[in-house]
């Protein structure tokens, strides 16, 4: 049931975030800046484009040498980090 929710939930990246294609992120509401590694940048772009976890997983496992179970672990950890940094809009 939980996994089901997880799959259907589409993350919303905080609005107004300025994300450059070098992986530099600026949060205009707090003034904080961040850097993403290439995989992190790719994930953020996929999430922003409205893709859910299954779609993202298909994309990533097709491109990179990682299996779906391992990827899910890193994905969830990444999302948790974004949430801790208040870069995810949970109310959207």
């Amino acid at each position: 049931m939980k996994a089901q929710q997880l799959n259907e939930e589409i993350m919303k990246i905080k609005k107004n975030l300025a994300i450059s294609d070098t992986g530099f992120v600026f949060d205009p509401s707090t003034g904080d800046s961040y850097t993403l590694n290439p995989v992190g940048l790719e994930l953020i772009q996929l999430i922003k484009s409205g893709q859910d976890l299954p779609a993202i997983t298909t994309h990533i496992t097709g491109k990179y040498d990682v299996d779906a179970i391992a990827f899910e672990r890193y994905y969830l950890d990444f999302i948790a980090t974004l949430r801790q940094m208040h870069l995810i809009d949970d109310n959207a």
Partner: peptide, 14 residues
């Protein structure tokens, strides 16, 4: 086609 090496995604505050 060989797949790219996967690195875990990270974001860091500057």
């Amino acid at each position: 086609m060989t797949k790219l090496a996967f690195e875990r995604p990270i974001i860091q505050r500057i």
